[in-house]
Design a protein around this nucleic acid. Structure first.
Lengths: 157, 157
DNA sequence: GTTAATTAAGAATAATATTCTGCTGTTAAG
DNA sequence: CTTAACAGCAGAATATTATTCTTAATTAAC
């Protein structure tokens, strides 16, 4: 376990807020917003990337536009040895699986899955999930409608 | 309900793949990658934004770097009238709540919440959740460890 | 064939990114 | 107190991109 010190200041937080809100904002605009030189901003952004404060930049794509209209959560009970998460890693490799969380209390995982429709979900479970060894049982929850969905994190101060 | 036609072709998919993977890739690079002129790419990207195929660009920030180390899912049973989702909208306004899904079967919601720690979670439930009218009961699931977490969608072809 | 609508290329200009240099304030050692 | 090391920023210079506009090619409709 590597203990990490992030040591972010007010200016870093402002940069993070701007970039979380608009991942394609340019240096010049950030600089203008904060009243600093673009070169100084660039230096900070690079440091933030280096320190893994900024993990990734991504365009958020409308799932419906690429025919992935159904969202589901599946609880998976597994016979993983504690701390090993062989099943979790196998689940993470399935492209339709967006999230895999190791949850407390059930020797299990909660995964988030996107498929075209219920047929796609059934296919995924029959053809892919069923091939993952160590799964004891599953319980599926279908999402009817999503009210909010983002990765925006609360930034201090 | 507005029926939308997206009509994306192979080139659009390639652009989406690149931008989903790297939200800060520039036009020139996309153009080079696809062997097309930057102006043509720009035109397509703007169209993709306009058609809401690309919903947003965002920097993904390491939650630990901003002291949000605990992730939880909470099932919320509500007395919302079907289709009204007053409770859902209220939940969506809480900054620590990243996702609100209306789920089948339980007149309920599944929400995803990030707090600093278990104390922060308790505070949130006591101070904020408890003030949302229409909540009948909650069931909280704590995430011990996240194996995978992204919004990457499967892009066809 | 003609026309209209798309789509892309290419050229020109505006704007940004990036690198480098030097200045300044801070800190810690002596 | 003095000095050395360092971090952070500004400003200037250059390399790269973004953006706009014009023109050409393709296709579909008539």
């Amino acid at each position: 376990m590597t203990k990490v010190e992030y040591n972010l200041d007010q200016v870093d937080y402002k940069i993070l807020r701007l970039m979380q809100d608009n991942g394609r904002i340019n240096n010049a605009d950030i600089a203008r917003e904060l009243g600093m030189a673009p070169s100084a901003i660039l230096e900070r952004v690079k440091k933030l990337e280096q320190k893994d404060v900024i993990l990734k930049y991504s365009a958020k794509i409308n799932p419906a536009a690429v025919d992935q209209k159904l969202l589901s959560f599946i609880f998976i009970k597994a016979n993983d040895i504690i701390g090993e998460q062989r099943v979790g890693l196998a689940l993470a490799e399935i492209p339709e699986v967006q999230e895999v969380h190791d949850i407390a209390g059930d020797d299990g995982y909660l995964i988030k899955v996107r498929t075209a429709d219920s047929t796609g979900l059934v296919d995924l479970m029959r053809n892919t999930l069923s091939k993952v060894e160590g799964i004891i049982s599953t319980r599926t929850t279908i999402v009817l409608q999503t009210v909010k969905e983002d990765q925006q994190v609360v930034i201090p101060e």
